[in-house]
């Protein structure tokens, strides 16, 4: 059964209007018109009349959890969340960046989302591959069922099988393309540090101009900072103007964290992020 994006859009509008009218929230993070159909934009509705500007279609890939951390603590807000986006919200709750009670989550079961750049359908190859939000207050539509369940880590096999030199060459070629526009960190719901380590001058962690060494430092450290936190929404890679498959590295680190610590990011508000946690009986084998 195909999802009707129009129906979701209508429900989003109604919910947003209701929430803003009753004053339950002071803003709604959703999507609005861009310069054409294929490029909807993040949109913040603040007045009930703003709700009419909300749109939803298969190109609304942005992770709106990204914008929650911009508002002062305690701001009551509603957020439109697709599957991975809801995991980002959960992760941000775990990190005490937002409080559950301040949020109204408008869950969107979305199947058949498309990458506006390539027109490809987004699935487990570039994201976590879930279709239903993990956490929500209102579900705007019926849950998606009956889609094949594919591990989001399957796509890694061919890269894991490469020998070290080939893998190094692969990443060097990819990371050398980086123009350091920082769209990846801007799109990422988990990149909220101010300042980002790479913008610091004392100490200066890496070269700031777009060249091999600085790019390597920026990306390896960013992959590390997202370990156990990246919820595999794939937004970083879709935002990248030079199409670096950042999601591959993030997936690999997520997979390793899941293997080593037995917990995936953003699946339960009860969890603690794996790297600010430990078990006394963690095995030394993980260091081998």
């Amino acid at each position: 059964m195909a999802i009707s994006f129009k129906q979701i859009e209508d429900k989003l509008k109604t919910e947003a209007k209701g929430l803003l009218e009753t004053g339950k929230v002071s803003l709604v993070l959703a999507y609005g018109k861009g310069y054409d159909e294929k490029h909807p934009m993040p949109y913040v509705a603040r007045r009930p009349s703003d709700a009419d500007n909300i749109v939803f279609n298969e190109f609304c890939t942005h992770n709106m959890a990204r914008y929650m951390v911009r508002y002062p603590a305690g701001t009551k807000m509603a957020v439109a969340v697709k599957a991975a986006d809801s995991r980002a919200v959960i992760q941000l709750i775990q990190e005490e960046k937002v409080k559950r009670e301040d949020l109204v989550l408008l869950g969107i079961p979305a199947y058949g989302m498309k990458n506006p750049k390539t027109g490809e359908t987004i699935d487990s190859k570039t994201t976590c591959g879930l279709y239903n939000p993990v956490l929500y207050d209102v579900l705007l539509g019926e849950e998606v069922h009956g889609q094949p369940v594919v591990s989001p880590y399957d796509v890694l096999a061919q890269y894991e099988a490469m020998d070290k030199e080939a893998r190094f060459a692969f990443w060097k070629k990819e990371l050398d393309k980086c123009i350091r526009c920082y769209a990846c960190r801007k799109a990422c719901p988990m990149c909220y540090c101010d300042p980002c380590f790479i913008d610091q001058n004392k100490p200066k962690w890496g070269e700031k101009s777009p060249e091999s060494a600085g790019n390597l430092m920026y990306h390896l450290t960013r992959f590390h900072h997202l370990a156990g936190r990246c919820i595999d929404c794939g937004e970083c890679s879709r935002a990248c103007p030079v199409n670096i498959p950042l999601y591959l590295f993030h997936k690999k680190v997520a997979k390793d964290c899941e293997d080593m610590f037995g917990q995936a990011a953003g699946m339960s508000v009860e969890d603690k992020p794996v790297l600010v946690n430990f078990r006394v009986d963690d095995s030394d084998k993980i260091l081998e």
């Binding site: 070290k164 692969f170 590390h224 680190v253 260091l287």
Partner: peptide, 13 residues
């Protein structure tokens, strides 16, 4: 540091 090791490894180091 276990994560650091995995990252080095996947980078090709």
């Amino acid at each position: 540091l276990a994560v650091t090791k995995k990252i080095l490894e996947f980078s090709g180091m």
